[in-house]
Design a protein around this nucleic acid. Structure first.
Lengths: 341, 341
DNA sequence: GTGAAAGCGCTAACAC
DNA sequence: GTGTTAGCGCTTTCAC
C-alpha cells in the first residue's frame, strides 16, 4: 500500500539492491546513485518496512525492556534513561511491564520475548530463575540486567549490601544507637534480592558496631510511600520506645517515614533521623540524606552495554558496578532527644 | 536458525497452511490435525516469527504508545493501564517517550511511528499539530488520544474546564474568597492545553461567584511537586497577604502546595485549603481533596477503543468523556483564619 | 559499482 | 478440511 523500495528504484533509475545499499549505508554505492536514490526516496516519501527488513536481515532494531512496575520511581527512571538512549540510537523500545506479581512474567517470557522481534533484552530488577534465564538465552539475544543480579547475565547495579552498610554507618557515626530499618516484605524478594541485601548490610553495620537490633524495628512493607508511612508510624509510636533513626531501603520509603514522623509531631532530624537509598528527585525538597544511585544513568548505560554487544563484536560486556554518591542533607543529625531504653 | 513452520508441518505430516491455520485459529482445521500440529510445535519448541507474520498479514500485534514523560504520575498510570490491557490482549507495546521538550517528537514521528510496525497508536497528552496528525493518519492506522484533545482523532479525556470549575466551586462553597491557582507554564501548553483549560475553569468559577482573582495568585510553574512547592511558598508568604485556599492543577502540584504550607508553619486545612485533580495514589496519605480521574482506567479503556477499531469493523469509536469522581478528604474546609485584604 | 535472483518465515487466496 | 502457490518488502550473495 505504501511506497516500496521498488518504487524508489524505478524513479531513481537503479536496481532495488542499490536502493537498499544507498539507504542502509552497507556496501558501496557511487555518490551519484546515492543522491538519486535519496532524492527519489524523499520525493516519494518512502518509509522502509522494518518487518521486511528484519525478516531479511535478522536485525530488528528493537530492544525489549522488562520491568516489574512503571510507577515506582526507580523503575520509571531507569526506563526514562533507557528510552532516551534507545531513541538516540534509532532503536524501538518494547515495554514488558510484568507487574509486581509474578504471574505475568510467565506469559511475557513465553508469549512475547521469544517471538524473535527483539535484538536484545534489558531486564530491570527481575530475579529470573535459571530456567527462565535458559529460555531467554535460547533465543540467542544479548541480555543485560539492571538493579538485580541475574545468573549468567551481564548486570549493572549498585552493591546493595555495601550501600546499606554505609548508610547505617552514617547514622551510627552520628551517635545513633537505636536504629530501625524499613524494607520490603518477603513478597518482594521473589523478584529482586534487594530487600534482603539491604537488610543484610544494615545488620552487618549494626553488628560491627556492637549494636543490638530489636526485631520489631525491622519493619517489612511494600516499597511505596504509603507502606513505609504506616510502618514508620507503628515504629515511631510503639509503646516500647522509639528509634532515634530510621534507615529506609528506598527514598520513597524514606519519604513515607518523614511524613509519618511529621504527622506524629516528631521533628526530623531533631527527634528522628532518616536516611534512604536512591537519589529521588524529591530528595532536595524533603532534605533527605541518601545514596544517589542515578537510575536514569543506569538505564542509559545498560542500553549502551546492550547495543555494544549487538552492534559490536558480540562479546558480553563485563558486569559493572555503579558507584552511588552519598548525599548528606538535613534529614540526618546527631540524636538530640533523650533516649529511652 | 530457529524452528520454522515448515519443520512443524513436516513432523506433523500436514502442510504449512494447515499449521498456520491450526496455530492462528483462523480457518478450519480438523481436531485431529490441530492436535498433531500442536504436539509437533510443542515438541520442536516452535516460536512463530512475528516479523514474518506481520509482513505476510499486515497485522503486527503491536501498539505504539506515545507520551511526554514516564515519570509523572498521570503518564505512568496511563501507561500501566495500557500495558496491562495490551498484555492481556496479546499485543506488544512499543514505547515512544518523547520527553517534555518537543524536539524528540519530530524524530519519533518521522523515524519511528511510520515504519509500519504498529497496528495503532495511543497518543497520551500530546497536542499534535494538524500537520503531525496528517502524517500520523497517512499510515492508515487508528489513533486514540488520551488526556489531550487531538483534532480528527478519537479522544478519551475528562472535561478539564468543567472539572476545574467544580473544584473551584467546592472551595467557594466552603466560604473561600481568596483563592489562588497553581498551574503549568506556557511551556507546557505546547503539548497539552490542560493548563489553559484548568485555568479557564478556575477563572469561570471565580467570575460566576463574583470573586476577584489577583494576578499574582495565578502561579505558573512546571507540573512537578517541587515546582508547585516553590510556587506555593511564594504565594503563601507574599507580603500582600495570602490566599485561604489553593486550587492546584494536579495532585502532584497539590502535594507540593501542602508541603509548602507545612514548611511555613501553616495548617491544612485550617490556615489554607488545598484541592487537586488526578486521584493520585498518595492522595489518602495527604488527605487530599481531589477529582479522581483514574488514569489507569483511561489507559485500559483507550486500548480497548483502539483494539476494537483494529479487530472490529474498523469504525472509529466516538470520543468519550471520562467521568471523574470528586473525593473530599481533609485538605479542604471552611476558612478559619482571619482574612486580610 | 551495480543488477538479478534467491530467499527470510509466514499468510491468504484459490483449488480440490 | 487441506494442500498448492504466490507473494508481503526487504537484504544479500553472486555474477558481471
Amino acid at each position: 500500500m505504501g511506497v516500496s523500495i521498488r518504487d524508489v528504484a524505478e524513479t531513481a533509475g537503479v536496481s532495488m539492491a542499490t536502493v537498499s545499499r544507498a539507504l542502509s549505508g552497507r556496501g558501496n554505492v557511487s555518490p551519484r546513485s546515492r543522491q538519486r536514490v535519496l532524492d527519489a526516496a524523499a520525493k516519494l516519501g518512502f518509509v522502509p518496512s522494518y518487518n521486511a527488513s528484519s525478516l531479511a536481515s535478522g536485525r530488528t532494531r528493537n530492544i525489549g525492556v522488562m520491568l516489574p512496575s512503571v510507577s515506582r520511581w526507580f523503575f520509571s527512571s531507569v526506563l526514562e534513561g533507557a528510552s532516551k538512549a534507545l531513541l538516540e540510537a534509532g532503536y524501538d523500545l518494547t515495554l514488558y511491564n510484568t507487574g509486581e506479581q509474578p504471574g505475568n512474567r510467565e506469559s511475557v517470557l513465553n508469549d512475547f520475548l521469544l517471538r524473535q522481534r527483539l535484538d536484545g533484552v534489558l531486564a530491570v530488577s527481575l530475579e529470573l530463575s535459571s530456567d527462565e534465564v535458559d529460555r531467554l538465552m535460547r533465543v540467542k539475544r544479548p541480555v543485560v540486567g539492571v538493579g538485580g543480579p541475574i545468573a549468567g547475565v551481564a548486570t549493572l547495579r549498585i552493591d546493595d549490601v555495601a550501600v546499606a552498610r554505609e548508610a547505617t554507618q552514617h547514622l551510627i557515626g552520628l551517635g545513633h544507637r537505636d536504629i530501625a530499618h524499613v524494607s520490603g516484605t518477603a513478597e518482594f524478594e521473589r523478584d529482586f534480592a534487594l530487600p534482603t541485601s539491604r537488610r543484610e548490610g544494615f545488620l552487618a553495620a549494626m553488628k560491627d558496631a556492637g549494636l543490638e537490633v530489636r526485631s520489631s524495628w525491622l519493619a517489612a512493607t511494600d516499597f511505596t510511600v504509603s507502606g513505609a508511612y504506616s510502618a514508620s508510624k507503628r515504629l515511631l509510636a510503639a509503646p516500647g520506645g522509639r528509634p532515634t533513626a530510621i534507615f529506609a531501603a528506598s527514598d520513597e520509603m524514606a519519604f513515607g517515614a518523614i511524613l509519618a514522623a511529621r504527622d506524629l509531631g516528631l521533628r526530623v532530624p531533631d527527634d528522628v533521623s532518616i536516611v534512604g537509598i536512591d537519589g529521588h528527585d524529591l530528595g532536595p525538597l524533603f532534605g533527605l540524606t541518601t545514596f544517589d544511585q542515578n537510575p536514569r544513568k543506569q538505564g542509559e548505560t545498560a542500553v549502551h552495554m546492550l547495543l555494544g554487544q549487538i552492534e559490536g563484536d558480540g562479546a558480553a560486556p563485563p558486569s559493572a558496578a555503579i558507584e552511588p554518591e552519598f548525599v548528606v542533607r538535613s534529614s540526618t543529625a546527631a540524636p538530640k532527644a533523650a533516649q529511652r531504653g
